Amino acid sequence: MSTLRTTNVLLAAIVLVLLALVLRPLRTPEPVLAQSSDTDYYFEPGTFLVRAPDNSQQITVYAKVVVDLRNGRIWAFPTFSTAPYPADPIYSKPQTSHPFELGRFALEDTKKFSPLSTDH
């Protein structure tokens, strides 16, 4: 009789621990981040009609614009359509988009001015 009671108590303890593990995410769910805060790139929403400054691409092309937050360089990844991913209606296989540089933001200049300074 004692072993049956011990077995039932252990099984009940196991069930309670498993129940607590299952219900924990319902009480405090993990946050979901669409874009991590520690990324070094900013992806501009949507696509834009852009032109390569050195005319290495077509006259104008739809592209996804990306800013490298480490150095301020601005890149365009051609999508060839208004879709947010590279798509070519002629080819049915997935396309790879190779970037070209559009320009650069001088991010280091933002540190030159004090927020209290009025002589910009």
Rank of each mutant, 00 (worst) to 15 (best):
D68I: 07
A63Y: 03
D88S: 08
F105V: 13
Q35C: 03
P45M: 08
D88Q: 01
Y41H: 13
A52Y: 00
F77K: 05
P53S: 05
N8E: 11
K111P: 02
Q57Y: 11
E44H: 10
I14Y: 07
H98N: 01
A34G: 03
N55H: 07
L16N: 03
L69Q: 12
D68G: 02
A52E: 03
V65P: 04
F113K: 09
S81V: 06
L26F: 10
P29D: 01
V15C: 12
A63D: 09
H98K: 01
S36K: 14
H98C: 02
Y62I: 07
I59W: 10
T60Y: 06
N71G: 00
P94Y: 07
V50Y: 02
R104M: 15
F100K: 00
V15F: 14
L23G: 07
D54S: 05
S97A: 04
E30C: 10
A106C: 03
Y85A: 03
L10Q: 13
W75N: 02
A106S: 11
F100S: 02
T82Y: 02
P31G: 06
I90F: 09
T118D: 05
R104A: 05
P115E: 08
I59L: 06
T60E: 14
L18A: 10
D109K: 13
T47A: 05
R73S: 05
K111T: 11
V67R: 12
V65R: 11
Y85V: 14
P53T: 00
Q58R: 12
P99W: 00
I14K: 11
A13P: 04
P84E: 12
D38Q: 10
V67F: 13
E108G: 02
Q58M: 11
F105P: 00
Q35R: 11
R27H: 05
L69W: 13
R51P: 00
T96A: 00
V17T: 08
D88G: 01
T60W: 07
L33N: 03
S36A: 14
G103I: 08
A63M: 08
Q95V: 15
T96W: 05
P94C: 02
L33I: 13
P89Y: 09
V22K: 15
S36F: 09
N55C: 00
Q35V: 14
L69D: 01
L107T: 01
S56V: 02
I59V: 12
F113N: 05
L11M: 15
V61S: 04
D109S: 06
A106R: 15
A76Q: 06
S37R: 15
A106P: 03
R104C: 08
R70S: 15
E101F: 01
E108T: 09
V50P: 03
